[in-house]
C-alpha cells in the first residue's frame, strides 16, 4: 500500500493531473455554452410572437440540450466523475434514467389537466385552440367584467 492513500478501501492511489489547463478549458466551454443559450434566449425575445410554434419549441429544446451539455461538463470535469472508474459512473448515471419517466409522466398528466379544464371535462369545445391569444381561464373571467 502506498502511503498517500486517503482511506483503507482505496487500493490504488489516484494520480492527479498537474496542470490547471483542463479546468480553464472547461470554464471557457461553459461560458461559451451559456453565451449561446443567452443568444437563443434573446432570439426568442426579439422574435416574440412572430415565430411559428414549431420553431419556438425547437429553439427551446435546443436550449435544453445545451443545458444538458453544461451539466455534463460540470459533472464530468469539475466533479471529476469522468475520472472515476466505470463502476462508479454507472451507479450514478443509471439511476438518473428514472428522471425520463418521472418527467414524461408528470408533464403528460399536467397537459391532460389543461385539456380537462379548457373543455370542462369534455363537455364543451376547447376555445383556446381557436383563439389567437392563449389565455388563462382565471384571467379570461376577470377580463370580461
Amino acid at each position: 500500500m502506498s502511503s498517500n492513500l486517503t482511506s483503507p478501501e482505496i487500493t490504488y492511489a489516484p494520480e492527479h493531473a498537474s496542470g490547471t489547463s483542463r479546468i480553464w478549458k472547461t470554464f471557457w466551454v461553459l461560458s461559451a455554452l451559456t453565451v449561446i443559450e443567452l443568444g437563443l434566449g434573446y432570439f426568442l425575445y426579439w422574435k416574440h410572437g412572430q415565430l411559428p410554434y414549431a420553431l419556438t419549441l425547437s429553439t427551446k429544446l435546443l436550449i435544453a440540450a445545451l443545458t444538458l451539455a453544461k451539466a455534463y461538463y460540470i459533472v464530468s470535469i469539475f466533479m471529476h466523475l469522468g475520472d472515476e472508474i466505470r463502476n462508479m459512473i454507472m451507479t450514478i448515471v443509471v439511476p438518473l434514467m428514472l428522471f425520463i419517466w418521472f418527467i414524461a409522466a408528470f408533464l403528460w398528466d399536467g397537459n391532460a389537466w389543461k385539456n380537462l379544464r379548457n373543455t370542462d371535462g369534455g363537455s364543451r369545445p376547447d376555445k383556446t385552440k381557436t383563439e389567437q391569444h392563449q389565455q388563462h381561464p382565471a384571467v379570461d373571467k376577470d377580463a370580461k367584467k
Binding site: A105, D109, A112, W113
Partner: peptide
C-alpha cells in the same frame, strides 16, 4: 381523472 393513455402505460 388520469389521462387514459397514461393510465394504460401504468
Amino acid at each position: 381523472g388520469l389521462n387514459p393513455f397514461l393510465g394504460s402505460v401504468f
